[in-house]
Design a protein around this nucleic acid. Structure first.
Lengths: 155, 155
DNA sequence: CACCATTACCTGTCCGAACAAGTAAAGCGC
DNA sequence: GCGCTTTACTTGTTCGGACAGGTAATGGTG
């Protein structure tokens, strides 16, 4: 296993990168047998839990992109997991609702999330898990602050 | 800020996902002004540090995909950061080498890595940084073990 | 009411990532 | 040398993610 210059230059950054890639890869592998792609399971979970949502609401909930959501919803619709219905009080908006057929997936997705959590933190002691949450939270706060600052510019 | 079901189902997993996305987004924003896309900076840094490499070597160094590397190299070539030369002792292989023009980028990339490291861990005390590295290392080991196990199948 | 900025969504484009399938060269056993 | 597997690389496809640009409906404000 190579330890490139990245490891010297930014150890924390490099570690985040590696963990992120592994996490993403494993999630993808777990999701594939269900016919779901990465990120789609988040959409479905929100729909199952909150009921029909407008695309904008889904974008805000998942903190995703409107364009990505449009295509993602279209694929979920083609797969039969989701239905689109015009929003009654706003002719611009579309209501997305989970199909009855999709309900069969819910347990599977929840199982996969448990599996993914175990893959991430299963080998850690409860103390280490708490520590991991604090650490990740600290890093997220850091990054969020920088992202917010760079997003200001000229409002 | 919404706290979806994901937070309950897999706190660590969800935290990894959020940190990864922020980290990726900030890296992308920092890299854009240089004309580099996410991941390309890793290729360049390896080339700058190690000199000409075959695509396979780069794939192994970055732990990437051969197909992705082919297209990535092609884009770096079009951008003028990289040159392709047939490998003298192996007619299948291609040697990738950084152009002189690309050397101007090296400092910028190193600066950006420092900035990204600061964005990730800058707000942490030295103790917290050490703790963060240990935590991320533990999680990575966990994920790597699972990934290796699922990759076995029938060798 | 008319004007206009905002909002919700769609489309096109480009990128990395992953998978599948293919070609050509290299290496190995015989 | 001949055949087989392995290796290096390419191409095609599909996905999420991000950005730009466009359309239609909405919601103010004058």
């Amino acid at each position: 296993m190579p330890v490139p210059a990245a490891a010297h230059a930014g150890p924390v950054s490099h570690a985040i990168f590696r963990v992120a890639r592994l996490h993403r890869m494993i999630a993808g592998q777990l999701l594939r047998p269900l016919g779901l792609h990465l990120g789609q399971e988040l959409v479905m979970m929100h729909l199952w839990e909150l009921g029909p949502q407008r695309q904008t609401d889904l974008v805000r909930l998942i903190d995703s992109d409107a364009a990505t959501m449009t295509r993602s919803i279209k694929r979920l619709e083609n797969a039969g997991f989701v239905r689109r219905r015009p929003c009654p009080d706003d002719k611009r908006a579309v209501l997305i609702e989970p199909t009855a057929a999709s309900q069969a997936l819910r347990r599977e997705v929840e199982r996969i999330w448990a599996e993914l959590e175990d893959a991430s933190a299963g080998g850690l002691t409860p103390d280490q898990q708490t520590e991991a949450l604090h650490t990740l939270r600290r890093i997220e706060d850091n990054l969020a602050r920088v992202a917010a600052r760079s997003g200001e510019g000229a409002p």
